[in-house]
């Protein structure tokens, strides 16, 4: 068995509350292999950052914002969702492996949902037999 998949979570600090399950070094204690980077708003996340993370060796990237409709800054989560789906520039590059990206839209109290979805996502990553050229 290869060692645990490396997954990086780019998360809005107002979305799903991870305080208490993320240690000082940015590792999530509930989901093995997951690192967390916080943003003021998920709208700040650039598709480029996701690509960089994959280039730097991440097996997967989880983008997390608030419930669609409830962005503290009005539209940030819609923006990044549209960017991920390719409907709003800048978008992901063509060659980016989209199977390695998951976006979750979870409100502050939905920590359990975050954990279960991430674990499921990591399981699908394990099933991606041949990693495409990164």
């Amino acid at each position: 068995m290869s060692d645990a998949k490396k997954v990086i979570t780019l998360i809005c600090e107002r979305a799903c509350d991870l305080s208490g399950i993320v240690d000082d070094s940015g590792s999530c204690t509930e989901v093995p292999g997951m690192k967390v980077v916080k943003f003021p708003c998920s709208g700040m996340i650039q598709p480029l950052m996701i690509e960089n993370a994959i280039k730097a060796g991440a097996d997967g990237v989880v983008v997390t914002g608030c419930q669609i409709g409830d962005c503290y800054y009005r539209e940030g989560n819609r923006m990044i969702r549209e960017r991920l789906l390719g409907d709003r520039p800048p978008t992901l590059k063509k060659g980016t492996d989209r199977r390695r990206i998951l976006a979750l839209w979870l409100a502050k109290p939905q920590r359990q949902r975050f954990i279960s979805e991430s674990k499921e996502f990591i399981a699908t990553l394990n099933n991606l037999a041949t990693p495409e050229a990164k």
Binding site: F39, P40, C41, G43, M44, I45, Q46, L48, Y72, Y73, E75, G76, M79, I80, R83, P89, P90
Partner: peptide
């Protein structure tokens, strides 16, 4: 400006 950073996400040129 609210300091939300949405513009950062929008800019493809850093």
């Amino acid at each position: 400006c609210s300091g939300c950073g949405v513009c950062v996400g929008a800019c493809a040129f850093d």
